[in-house]
Computed example of a mutant assay.
Amino acid sequence: MITGLRERKREQNRASTVKAAWRLFIEHGYDNVTVADICAAADIAPRTFHRYFPSKEDVVAEPMRRMSKIVADHIAAASPAASDVEVLRGAMTALGRFAVDNRDLLIAVRLVAEHSQHIRGAYLGRPEHEREIVGQLTARHPDADPDAWPRRLLVACTVAAYRLWYEDNLRFDLPDPAAHLDTILTRAFTVSSTTDEPLGEA
């Protein structure tokens, strides 16, 4: 129980440090903010900062790290009986909740990225994210072909659908973000399932 409390405290401290850093990035620009500035804003010692993040660049990557972990954790915890579509829908729904709950932070990420080549490069859609998800899904099926194109198509359509919703969520005040995400995912799954090719698992 003590270990669990420590982990929660650690995650809370990480999150508050990230928020403090992004406030500074918005006000002064990423290139003009130092680790010392972040420590002062977050009211932590440099040693504490480096316990969470090796460098300032790792603060930039933190939102993406958390989002990738949400997807990976959901896939790992999914029932073996669940289909890939069910698992992906659940993972994207969990990711959507994170995006809604952290909308202000993610808007800040986008605004700062528009003025920093370094951050823009870090936050553009990366093909390796899709490959990671394909690998995580494939691991659920011991006899599956890791290169099966239907699964890769399913993941590509799902990621593209989430990215479209993500932009809508940041740009507009959606009356029901969860329903909007569900509608877009349903359309993506319909597109990706218009094939008779099996995915290769038992």
Score class of each variant (00 low, 15 high):
Ile38Ser: 01
Arg103Met: 05
Leu164Tyr: 10
Asp176Ser: 10
His115Lys: 08
Lys56Tyr: 05
Ser79Tyr: 04
Arg47Met: 13
Val85Leu: 09
Gly121Leu: 05
Ala94Lys: 04
Met1Gln: 11
Asp168Pro: 02
Tyr30Trp: 06
Tyr30His: 07
Met64Asp: 12
Val60Asn: 07
Asn102Phe: 00
Gln136Cys: 00
Glu57Gly: 11
Leu124Arg: 08
Glu197Lys: 12
Ala113Trp: 01
Glu11Pro: 01
Arg126Pro: 00
His180Ile: 03
Thr158Gln: 15
Leu153Thr: 11
His50Tyr: 15
Leu174Gly: 11
Pro54Ser: 11
Met67Pro: 03
Glu27Asn: 10
Pro150Asn: 09
Ala78Cys: 05
Thr138Phe: 02
Arg103Phe: 00
Arg14Thr: 13
Leu181Pro: 02
Ala156Tyr: 14
Val60Tyr: 05
Thr158Trp: 05
Ala21Asp: 10
Asp104Ile: 02
Glu57Ser: 08
Thr34Ala: 11
Glu11Trp: 06
Met67Asn: 12
Ala36Gln: 09
Arg14Gln: 13
Tyr52Cys: 12
Arg163Asp: 14
Ala113Lys: 02
Gln12Lys: 12
Val87Cys: 04
Asn13Arg: 15
Met1Asp: 10
Arg10Ile: 05
His115Asp: 10
Gly125Ser: 08
Thr194Phe: 06
Val60Cys: 09
Arg23Phe: 02
Asn13His: 11
Met67Tyr: 09
Gly135Trp: 06
Ile75Val: 02
Thr186Gly: 14
Cys39His: 05
Arg151Gln: 13
